[in-house]
Design a protein around this nucleic acid. Structure first.
Length: 561
RNA sequence: GCGCCCGUAGCUCAGUGGAUAGAGCGUCAGGUUGCGGACCUGAAGGUCGUGAGUUCGAGUCUCGCCGGGCGCGCCA
């Protein structure tokens, strides 16, 4: 990744500014840093106001204190040198503005060449390796297989998959993992519920109800039923084991329907059977992070910022959920992951400290363990909140939600909102306004481009092979071109922040820029094949960029709609 | 009571300490003898919950207060 195609415009500008600083210091125009001090990381951003350049740096403002020079004087020294040293000729012009910003304008020649690279990269455009790539495990959804996924699981499913997609886009190797409980009392309760329905008896108090339980009861295979009848005292477990696997398979099918594919399905039972829990508890004991009290074994999690110590082995000898979590930690690390990411509902925030503390106590780096908390979604129908309970059988399944609003619209909805913000999802509104949904605005731009390209082909017009020397002087075309070049930076920032809403914002902005371009520049013109060729090439690059932005979010890019 | 998250336009939400706080929807007024009107242009609409502090600069960081959500189990 030393050659220019792997570097974004912002990378090049950042290097150019850094070199300008070095040169200014070497030439004596600016003081050197003191002993042991190093140059700060150069921040280059895209200004909100286009009059402030394509890119801008506040480096002079940040250095004013350390170098004991007025910010504008530092900015002048940088601006004089940044175009001379400019990375690969990317920066054509630099201006000092305001209190000491250095505003930068990209060279048309650079933009034209970069656009050719976009077209060569095709569906790979926007993917750019991070400085270091890692093997990352992302565990999400992880709902227990006691009933179908509900709309309550929707946000975690989408946000988790979206995070995986952006991590993959910057070169990380990602494993999507689903953790489920296949042997707890909840599974037995499911089995007892199936048994009760099958025998026409009233459901147990802590049983599950709903159509899916009736369907399960009707679908019990003969051999499973015979086994349950042969061992009446274990009938709940036998039926529960069968039912939960059937439910789990249904969950998997629902997730596949959303475009979410899990690489690993890990059961809590297997962690116990394979000895991971025992091993983890042993390591806690040996390392002195565990102690016995009142017949139970406690993990001294307060050493790691938890507000109280936690039981790992109950006085009845049974391990707690935390014990399994800690066992799972060493099991995951045994698979050589560099980073573990957990996506949990915000109601689990109280368990973050003990999990990360457990990792630390076992000798792992707590920085390798990330927990992304997903805020609650209030599902609303006609202004009224929908309350749900699996036990009561009153819930809306994920499948039902998707049948109403569509996968693309749902993906966009969750991708465009910060995971930490609580949000309202009005199902009626989502359905009623579906044609006004921003996702269709972006998809429409893509369909419109596809139509233009089809029309051009039918008139015998072809995109120009290269845009070099073709755009300079046309600010409308250059403006669109510069917008296209932002994608890799947007993706990289999203991956670093573990958030995707910037991608939807960008896609909307790009669609707007394209629609304005379309208004101002005629693309298909048989009387001017040369100009048409240039604009077709630019439009084709726009198609690629829109498709890739949508593709990163798992949203389709239709050629007509 | 303690801890975590949140409070930005009528509604739903964006907003790396940076320049005049944005988008979609909604409202109002307009727009195509050319390539898709699911489009475009413009207008109205903000004490960024509130009060202090930090600094060249705060929607963004710190503290207090107000309001909302969630969590505080040898449950999962």
């Amino acid at each position: 990744m030393t050659s220019s195609p792997a570097q974004s415009a912002r990378d090049l500008a950042r290097h150019a500014v850094a070199r300008a600083l070095e040169n200014a210091q070497a030439e004596g125009a600016l003081p050197q840093f003191g002993d042991g001090e190093s140059a700060p990381a150069v921040e280059v951003v895209r200004p909100d106001n286009t009059e402030h350049g394509d890119l801008s740096t506040n480096l002079a403002l940040q250095l004013a204190g350390r170098l004991k020079r007025p910010p504008r004087a530092i900015a002048e020294a940088l601006a004089e040198r940044v175009t001379l040293t400019a990375g690969e000729g990317a920066v054509a012009r630099a201006e000092v503005a305001g209190p000491g910003f250095v505003n930068l304008w990209l060279a048309p020649g650079y933009v034209e060449g970069a656009l050719d690279a976009v077209r060569r990269a095709g569906s790979d455009y926007g993917r750019m390796p991070a400085d270091t790539t890692q093997s990352i495990n992302v565990e999400f959804v992880s709902a227990n297989p006691t009933g179908p996924l509900t709309i309550g699981n929707a946000r975690g499913a989408f946000v988790g998959d979206l995070l995986c997609r952006v991590l993959e886009a910057v070169g990380h190797e990602v494993t999507r993992e689903y953790y489920f409980n296949d042997f707890g009392t909840q599974v037995a309760n499911l089995g007892k519920s199936v048994l009760a329905v099958r025998q026409g008896q009233p459901l147990p108090d802590d049983g599950y109800r709903g159509d899916y339980v009736n369907e399960l009861a009707a679908a019990v295979p003969a051999d499973v039923w015979a086994q349950a009848q042969a061992e009446p005292e274990r009938a709940g477990w036998i039926l529960g084991e069968w039912a939960s696997e059937r439910v789990r398979a249904g969950i998997e099918a629902s997730l596949e329907h959303l475009g979410v594919h899990f690489d690993v399905w890990k059961s809590e039972g297997s962690l116990h059977r394979e000895g991971w829990v025992e091993r983890a508890v042993g390591r806690l004991r040996e390392s002195g992070h565990a102690y016995e009290q009142e017949g139970a074994l406690w993990f001294r999690s307060t050493d790691y910022g938890d507000d109280k110590d936690r039981v790992v082995i109950r006085s009845n000898g049974q391990p707690t959920y935390l014990a399994a979590d800690v066992g799972y930690l060493i099991e995951k690390f045994s698979r050589d992951f560099d980073r573990l990411i957990y996506i949990w509902g915000a109601d689990h925030h109280g368990t973050v400290a003990r999990l990360r503390g457990g990792a630390q106590a076992l000798g792992f780096d707590r920085e390798q363990v990330h927990v992304l908390l997903i805020a609650w979604v209030r599902f609303v129908r006609e202004g009224r909140e929908i309350s749900m309970s699996k036990r009561s059988g009153e819930f809306i399944t994920l499948d039902e939600l998707l049948a109403e609003v569509g996968v693309d619209a749902a993906r966009w909805f969750f991708a465009s909102r910060s995971p930490s913000t609580g949000i309202d999802f009005d199902i009626e509104l989502a359905r009623k306004q579906s044609n006004e949904n921003p996702v269709y605005y972006v998809q429409y731009a893509h369909a419109r481009i596809s139509s233009i390209l089809r029309k051009a082909a039918s008139e015998g017009l072809a995109p120009a092979p290269s845009l070099v020397d073709a755009l300079e002087g046309d600010e409308v075309s250059l403006g669109l071109a510069k917008e296209l070049l932002r994608l890799p930076d947007v993706v990289r920032d999203a991956a670093q922040a573990h958030e995707t809403q910037a991608i939807t914002t960008y896609a909307t902005s790009l669609a707007t820029t394209f629609h304005a371009f379309y208004r101002d520049r005629r693309v298909v013109d048989a009387d001017d094949p040369s100009t048409s060729g240039v604009r077709l090439a630019l439009v084709d690059a726009t198609r690629i960029t829109l498709a890739n932005a949508l593709g990163l979010l798992g949203i389709s890019a239709p050629e007509s709609m």
